[in-house]
Design a protein around this nucleic acid. Structure first.
Lengths: 207, 207
DNA sequence: CTACTACAGTGGTCTGACCACACATATCCT
DNA sequence: AGGATATGTGTGGTCAGACCACTGTAGTAG
């Protein structure tokens, strides 16, 4: 290395230099970065070390590689951090209950957010959609999560929903009337009412 | 989801198998995982591929390697991973707002859960702790997140908190009286009151 | 001009070779 | 016997080179 620099492992140093390179050259998502062989030469490192750095960044979803073409910077708006971590962490027995509990609360959060951010016509369109389609519960809440207009929440909900599937926790489908009532409550923007309607739809005890 | 792709790269498959191994053998933080050479043999893969997987997990902070000793499962706390990610991601204002919004709502969720699950003496101990220590806001909510007794929520909060730090979004510290009032509201188990007290503590508009 | 071929470049993977370091064991000297 | 030292084995860290599979393109044949 140009600068032997302490005990830092080579691949970590390469990650650092890549970040520097991206900043300095103003590389944007979709842009191509130098080939592994060129990097290994320019940074005075073995190709395998370069690969260790690239693979790590790939697993993080920061870059994308296409065989025969090259390595590209990725549009990392969709960060898979939570995804990765939770897949490693979700293991014990209690996890199942936690998933249910968490998903329910996140959905309510999304409902609150959606209520604030909903536009008139979007609510109308949603109600028409409810009437015109035979949909899964999942589809309805995906729309809600989108309307919440918060990428992190969307991400979190999406993952929780995946776990729901993975754990084979099927949500009991609700009546269309229940979805309508819920959407109506969104228009009022009243938190307590939204919560009540959600619990009704999920057939949860009102405590 | 998760259909077995045949085009999966070897290192990704190794990550998967490692996760499986950790689950099956019930490995906990601090435990040692097989050596790179043994893994490469057991999984029928080259050592370099095994290393690509391990390096990626290391950069994520999920494992720790010590030369001459071996590779160990780590106590997954957010840490450097988030720093790394945040330098790549989360640059625009919208993402920043999302973090704030999400963290606030998750904290309220944790408060609700904690209110339900709190034991008498634990609340007492918390109040004593508030009086006896000069703490950061972060420490208080870490305790709340723990009391929520939902691993997923705890993880999510932890990550969001790390994002907060990484984005240098310092929470304005609140008065001890505000924390006391908030804890008092937990005892009532009244959602509306808890929310009100939280907003007061965070100096948020009551809308 | 089109269609096919050949080639160069790229990522994907494996193997083998060293090195640096940590730990356990055996060995030696007092 | 006891402590210090040498040695051996196992581990991660790194590199070089060899193939393979795939892509895009320049060149060629029709």
């Amino acid at each position: 290395m140009a600068q032997p620099e302490k005990n830092t492992k080579v691949y970590v140093e390469i990650v650092r230099q890549l970040r520097e390179m991206i900043n300095k050259d103003g590389l944007k998502p979709g842009d191509k970065i130098p080939s592994e062989r060129e990097l290994s030469e320019r940074l005075n490192a073995g190709r395998s070390s370069v690969r260790e750095a690239l693979r790590a960044l790939e697993l993080l979803g920061l870059i994308e590689t296409r065989r025969g073409e090259g390595t590209f910077i990725r549009d990392f708006r969709g960060n898979q951090l939570v995804q990765l971590l939770s897949t490693f962490i979700l293991q014990d027995e209690k996890a199942k209950d936690d998933v249910v509990e968490t998903k329910n609360m996140i959905e309510v959060d999304c409902l609150y957010l959606a209520a604030e951010k909903f536009k008139e016509d979007e609510i109308k369109r949603l109600k028409v959609w409810i009437d015109d389609h035979n949909f899964e519960d999942e589809e309805f809440f995906r729309k809600i999560a989108e309307q919440a207009d918060n990428h992190l929440f969307y991400r979190i909900w999406y993952i929780l929903n995946d776990y729901y599937d993975a754990l084979q926790l099927k949500v009991s489908p609700a009546e269309k009337a229940d979805y309508h009532k819920l959407v109506d409550s969104l228009e009022t923007k009243r938190g307590d009412l939204i919560l009540e309607r959600y619990r009704m739809l999920r057939k949860m005890s009102t405590e």
